[in-house]
Nucleic acid binder design. Structure first.
Lengths: 210, 210
DNA sequence: TATTTTCCGTTGCAAAAGCAACACATTATG
DNA sequence: CATAATGTGTTGCTTTTGCAACGGAAAATA
């Protein structure tokens, strides 16, 4: 399976060969896009980190997804049923490619190699996204804050092949990602330490169980 | 966009032309597949309804996804990090096609039209799945049982283009789908009725707000 | 470097959700 | 049809979570 498509080289090679896309750069905390009026927009994060964030009517903030290099996002993945604000915020300097989804499978007027290869790679890229979303659902369906934390730590442990890893979020953001109250999460984190499940040194978590 | 691919006709036309897939029929409550040792399995539900169900160590049951006609599922969408049981249960009589994902983009040795068309349609089918999963995440990140219920009802209302609709779940299953305790959900349903948000007649919900 | 802003860690109290148990209704099944 | 199995509706009690508020640490910024 070709999971290692290097989009970046791709971009370097072909960035001038096709007119039907846009490449933009964003600074930290800038809004990359919103999911309101950009029908069929598809974006690829070439570099940096960004979050898809929702603010609900009670003022709760939720980090719906966390994107890193090669992540796909954009309004094409959403059927807007919500009246909540959905926006993608750059968490660091970001480089993003914008497409219209319809364009991808129509041959570019230049018949450009960029679009051709992209169209071939897209199923695998979207498939990766589906597995990410499924992992996210598994986390969110855990019944308690404790299980969400342990589940998330276990995930990071699997990814890093280590029982010790840095959190990619601030604790405030982690709470918004797990969809729980921050202070309640802090309390649970303390209990996990007291119960000998984890150690925490700065932003680093060390798993002690199993 | 070709969202209306009629897979069923597809099947009728080509079900004998290709050896690299399997078609099976399941009765209610039968296990269609598990997500443990079927690497790269991709399934399409041709007919019927089925649920992807997880049982955790505390005995909680979660309906991770609910599948109806033309839904995609299978182990290819999961990177197994969990030690929970994940299985697909038929909720009615089901007809299911099984593929190996690798096969789809390799030309079938017969160079069969079935596989060719499937490969062309797959991006759109997977895209549909992504939008489903995103809606699911939006539901699950709601902070209260009340908001989950209202969010789900609003979704059904949008789908049916009506403020009155049948629940596609039993209430027990709905609780497992929203990942909340059943009795707590029943209590909240009662409060929603008392507060004039909904009416409930048998399995039918009528939205009264807005 | 001084100062503002964000983040961390904690707590008391209130609200929400989970658990357990039960009676009754409805639906399968022998 | 009788009986078993499953689903609905309810409630008292316990546990978990959320909310609000605060002081101090750390980081960003002027």
């Amino acid at each position: 399976m070709n999971t290692n498509l290097d989009i970046e080289n791709f971009i370097l090679d072909f960035s001038n060969s096709c007119q039907k896309k846009q490449k933009k750069v964003f600074g930290k905390n800038e809004v990359v896009t919103t999911y309101i009026k950009n029908r069929n927009q598809l974006c690829i994060l070439i570099d940096g980190h960004a979050d898809l964030v929702r603010y609900d009517l009670n003022g709760n903030r939720t980090i719906v997804e966390h994107f890193s290099k090669n992540a796909l996002f954009g309004e094409v993945f959403y059927t807007i049923t919500t009246n909540n604000e959905l926006l993608v915020e750059a968490k660091s300097n970001c480089t993003v490619l914008f497409f219209i989804y319809d364009d991808i499978f129509q041959k570019c007027r230049n018949n450009c190699k960029f679009h051709q290869t992209l169209a071939e790679s897209l199923p695998q890229l979207i498939l990766n996204k589906v597995t990410d979303l499924n992992m996210r659902i598994e986390l969110l369906t855990k019944r308690s804050t404790r299980d969400k934390l342990l589940g998330y730590f276990s995930l990071l442990s699997t990814r890093t092949l280590s029982t010790s890893f840095e959190l990619p979020f601030s604790l405030t953001d982690l709470a918004d990602y797990l969809s729980v109250d921050r202070s309640a999460m802090m309390r649970e984190l303390k209990l996990l330490k007291e119960d000998g499940f984890i150690e925490k040194v700065g932003n680093r978590i060390i798993l002690l169980y199993k």
